[in-house]
Amino acid sequence: MKFGSVPIHEADGAILAHSVRIDGLTLKKGDVVTPDRRRRLAEAGVASVMAARLEDGDVGENDAAARLASRLAGAHTRSAAPFTGRVNLFAEAAGLALFDRAAIDRVNAIDEAITVATLPAHRPVEDGDMVATVKIIPFSAPAAMLERALDALGPAPAVSVAPFRPLRVAVVSTLLPGLKDSVVDKTLRALKARLAPTGARVTDHVACRHDAAALLEALGRVEPQADALVVFGASAITDRRDVIPAAIEAFGGRIERFGMPVDPGNLLLLAARGGKPIIGAPGCARSPKENGFDWVLQRILAGVPVADADIRAMGVGGLLMEIASRPQPREPHE
């Protein structure tokens, strides 16, 4: 691609690098100088324009962006029409945005002319939300460079959405003297609000004493008709041998992970029984504010694997907004 100042009498077919507004004529960056436009510019006293000309082997910005976006777009995403070297990718379902970071990093390493930007991985999105954008920085990309970028992506799409599933969620709340009914009610409302955008719903709720035997019995009552179980403890889990994990293991469940490098949310417990997930919710899950509970729950609802290794990887970015109402905030109030 040639780029620079072009005498106006030689500008036919050139691509304007900057907008031009003069004597009622408005041309935008990226507009092509036609004979009529060139004549009007000359009549207005314009002697030259900053412009680009494509050469053999160049792929125009829109075509290059469209080809790259087409390769990037995976399940439940769509590409919009290209404009000014940009193509946006949108979700076609409510779910979690998923990205092949290594593939996208390889594309962005090819050349500064080719860029791909995305939302953070595992960000919940709604149908119609933008999840990624492709931008060709100059007015074209060499065909060989574009092919290198396409090859760098590999055969699998690097941008997709895992749709939320309308799971049936059963809830058990354990009780201790002094725990108000209003706290349990507020917790259930917060969970229902979390589930609302996903299509999942609370199908059963049982309250029981905060001891392993009572919780074991409660789990047996709610489990048969549920796809996932959530336990809200009257007291936070402090050890793998505490009441909630002990009851889950007695129920035949397997503890996958206790504790996560996300704050608020450190004291989350993740377990499973026969492939059915069980979450021992941290105390912060009673709040509607984002916390580690959201990150695990959303993955379960979207059918995205979440195991010990996945939770270990949540530490960078895992320091979330403080929830002032929780019993032990990060900084004591003076």
Rank of each mutant, 00 (worst) to 15 (best):
L188F: 08
R86P: 06
V296W: 07
D58F: 04
A214E: 11
T77P: 01
R286N: 14
G57H: 01
A69P: 05
L216R: 05
L89S: 02
V206M: 04
R254N: 04
R312K: 11
K289Y: 10
G280D: 02
V159R: 00
R330W: 05
G74F: 00
H18N: 11
R38G: 11
K28C: 14
V231R: 04
A91G: 05
A246H: 08
I311N: 02
L297W: 08
P142Q: 14
D239A: 15
V20C: 07
Q328F: 13
D242N: 12
I8F: 07
V171W: 04
I8V: 11
L119Q: 01
T115R: 13
T198M: 11
V134E: 12
G259W: 05
L167T: 03
G317S: 06
G57L: 02
P261F: 03
L188M: 15
E334P: 13
G283D: 13
A11V: 07
R71I: 00
V131Q: 01
L269D: 03
D111M: 10
D56E: 14
P163V: 11
R330N: 07
V107F: 02
L270S: 11
V116D: 03
T133W: 02
S235R: 12
E217V: 10
A324R: 15
T198F: 09
A141I: 15
I244K: 00
E256W: 02
L96P: 02
L27Y: 01
F164C: 04
P264L: 10
G95L: 02
D308T: 12
H9K: 06
I279F: 04
M130Q: 15
A246D: 09
A213D: 15
F258M: 06
D151S: 14
V172L: 07
A103D: 03
R194C: 08
R165H: 04
L215K: 04
R240K: 12
A156H: 10
S48G: 09
V262T: 01
R240T: 14
A113T: 10
T34Q: 00
T238L: 10
T26S: 13
S287C: 08
I311S: 06
T84W: 01
L175W: 12
P155T: 13
I237K: 00
D227T: 09
Q328M: 12
G57A: 06
A17K: 10
S70I: 00
G318V: 00
L41F: 11
P157F: 13
T77W: 07
K186I: 08
T77M: 05
A75C: 09
